[in-house]
Amino acid sequence: MNSRRIVCFVISMLMSTVGHAQTLRLGVAANFAEPLKEISKRYQQQTGITTTLTVGASGTLYAQIQHGAQLDVFLSADSERPQALVESGRVGSDDVMTYAIGRLAYLDRDVRAPGIHDLQTYALAPGTRLAIANPRLAPYGRAAKEALHTLTLWPNLATRLVTGKNVQQAYQFYATGNVDRALVAYSQVYHLKKHVHLIDASLHQPIQQQLAITAPQDNRAAARQFVAFLLSDETQQWLAQRGYQPVGDEYQ
């Protein structure tokens, strides 16, 4: 039995103690908001426990928690903020775990079935603009920068990037026609049949999306039950069909 299954088994033992009238307060990074809405709906159908979602940038949610915001589970787009909560003493190390692995995708409006060679070709063309999330603020932006460095394209593109404050805004630059190429989250575009290339994960560091259980004592059992549901094989395989890589032992 792998470590994720062990975690889920242990946490699931709490289920019999959780009342069905509770409401869980979930803070979630924008890139994971849509999947979480569906997961929360399924969770409520199985348990009767309702959820409320606060959607925002990981850094903003982290700051709100540090200033006393009442959230039961914080689902970050990265691992830095949950780990910072551990370092500050806000949560214990066993309250933090990886819940999804993000993947990066290349969008190219001019090519129906683009490959990495198309990114390399257009990066050298005069006037090419490429949208990415801000590498200083967003994990998908950082992964995009790492991939471009690995491909030795960063020097050519660094001054021609159109940066969004998050990966949603980077995608919007492409969707609205402001740019013809972008590096975005695969979960945003997995359903598209054309113009998408899944970036090889070896070109950048894993995009580990971690959560932190920040619930007060009276809601901790319900929060842990929700986390068990999120980490279950069924939910992880559902996420795999929507552009995320399932969590494995190597990321725990």
Rank of each mutant, 00 (worst) to 15 (best):
P126M: 03
G127K: 09
T128V: 02
R129K: 14
R129T: 05
L130S: 02
L130K: 00
A133L: 04
L137P: 04
L137D: 07
A138P: 11
P139Y: 08
Y140W: 14
Y140C: 04
G141Y: 03
R142W: 07
R142S: 11
A143V: 09
K145M: 11
K145R: 15
L148R: 05
T150R: 14
T150L: 10
T150K: 12
L151K: 03
T152S: 13
W154F: 10
P155A: 06
L157V: 06
L157M: 07
T159N: 12
R160H: 15
L161A: 05
V162G: 03
T163D: 10
G164D: 01
G164W: 02
K165N: 14
V167Q: 00
V167W: 01
Q168H: 14
Q168V: 13
Q169N: 10
A170V: 08
A170C: 10
Q172Y: 12
Q172D: 13
F173K: 01
Y174G: 08
A175L: 10
T176P: 03
G177F: 07
N178F: 05
V179D: 00
D180Y: 05
A182S: 04
A182F: 00
A185R: 12
A185T: 09
Y186R: 02
Q188H: 14
V189A: 07
Y190F: 15
H191F: 10
L192D: 09
K194L: 11
K194A: 11
K194Y: 13
H195V: 07
V196A: 06
H197C: 05
H197A: 04
L198D: 10
D200I: 04
A201N: 13
A201M: 14
S202L: 04
H204R: 09
H204S: 14
H204G: 12
H204C: 10
H204M: 12
Q205G: 14
Q205H: 12
P206D: 04
P206I: 02
I207G: 12
I207F: 08
Q210W: 05
L211K: 00
L211C: 01
A212Q: 01
A212Y: 01
I213Y: 00
P216Q: 11
P216T: 12
N219I: 08
N219Q: 15
N219S: 11
N219G: 09
R220K: 14
A223S: 07
R224Y: 07
R224S: 06
R224G: 02
F226W: 13
F226V: 14
V227P: 04
V227C: 06
A228P: 07
A228L: 11
L231Q: 04
S232Q: 05
D233P: 02
E234K: 13
E234N: 12
Q237V: 10
Q237G: 07
Q237C: 06
Q237T: 15
W238Q: 09
L239P: 04
A240G: 15
A240Q: 11
Q241Y: 08
R242W: 15
G243N: 02
G243A: 04
Y244Q: 06
Y244A: 12
P246Y: 03
G248S: 12
G248I: 07
